[in-house]
C-alpha cells in the first residue's frame, strides 16, 4: 500500500493521460462515427458501400495492428507524425472506435419507430431533413447507452498505447513494477482500481440514462 501512495503523484499523472486520451479520441470517434453511420443509411450507393466496407474491415482488425500501422507503416507511405506517442494513439483509437460508434448510432436509428420516418416523408421532407429533424434527435436517445458502452471500451483500449511510446496507466505501472519488484501485485491492483474508477461510474450512468430514455413506442 505504501508504494502505491508514495508513487501516487506519478500514477495520477498517468491517470490524467489515460483520461485525456479517452476524451480526445472519444470526441473524434463520435464525429467520425456519426458521419459513417449517415453514409451507411444514406440513399447513395457508393457512400453505403464505403461505410459498410470501412466498418467491416475495422471491426475485424486488432487494435494493436491499427497502432502498428500508424507508428511503423504510415511513415513508409509518407505520413510522418511530428512526434510519437499522443497523436498516433489518437488517430488509431479514433479510427478504430468510430466503427463501433457507427454501429451504435445505426442501431439507434433502426430503433426509431417506422411511423416517425414515414410521417416525416409524408409531409415532404427529404432524406437529409427527415434524418436531421426527426430521426437523429430520437436516435440519440436510444443510442446513448450503447455509446457510453463504446466509451467504456475506449477507456480500456487506450491501454494499447502503452506499447507504442505513450505513457499512460499501463505503461506507468509497468515502469513502477520494474522499480519496485516486491510490490508488483499491489501496484497492479491499484492501477486496476483506477480503471474501474472510470469504467464503473460510466456503466452506472449508462444504465441510469437507459431507464430515463426508455420511452414507449
Amino acid at each position: 500500500m505504501i508504494t502505491f501512495i508514495d508513487e501516487f503523484g506519478t500514477i495520477w499523472g498517468a491517470f490524467l493521460a489515460t483520461v485525456s486520451l479517452t476524451a480526445v479520441s472519444g470526441v473524434l470517434a463520435l464525429i467520425g462515427g456519426v458521419v459513417v453511420a449517415t453514409f451507411r443509411v444514406s440513399p447513395i450507393g457508393p457512400l453505403r458501400t464505403f461505410g459498410t466496407v470501412y466498418v467491416e474491415i475495422v471491426r475485424n482488425t486488432p487494435l494493436t495492428l491499427m497502432f502498428f500501422f500508424w507508428v511503423f507503416v504510415a511513415p513508409s507511405f509518407g505520413l510522418v507524425f511530428p512526434e510519437l506517442g499522443f497523436w498516433p494513439a489518437i488517430v488509431a483509437l479514433s479510427l478504430y472506435t468510430s466503427a463501433f460508434v457507427c454501429e451504435a448510432m445505426r442501431s439507434g436509428i433502426n430503433s426509431v419507430g417506422l411511423g416517425q420516418a414515414e410521417a416525416a416523408r409524408s409531409i415532404g421532407m427529404t432524406f437529409g431533413q427527415s434524418l436531421t429533424h426527426v430521426v437523429l434527435p430520437q436516435a440519440w436517445r436510444s443510442a446513448i447507452p450503447p455509446l457510453i458502452s463504446v466509451l467504456i471500451a475506449l477507456t480500456k483500449n487506450t491501454s494499447v498505447a502503452a506499447g507504442f511510446a505513450f505513457t499512460e496507466l499501463v505503461a506507468i505501472s509497468q515502469r513502477l513494477a520494474n522499480r519496485h519488484p516486491a510490490d508488483v501485485i499491489e501496484l497492479f491492483v491499484g492501477v486496476g482500481l483506477m480503471y474501474l474508477l472510470i469504467t464503473i461510474p460510466l456503466g452506472v450512468l449508462a444504465s441510469r440514462v437507459e431507464k430515463k430514455v426508455a420511452f414507449a413506442r
Partner: peptide, 19 residues
C-alpha cells in the same frame, strides 16, 4: 450480438439493442 457487445463494454445496459 447486442448482449455480447454489452458484455464487452458496459455495465447493466442489458436490453439495449446494441450493435
Amino acid at each position: 450480438e447486442a448482449a455480447r457487445f454489452t458484455a464487452n463494454t458496459g455495465y447493466g445496459t442489458g436490453g439495449t439493442p446494441g450493435p
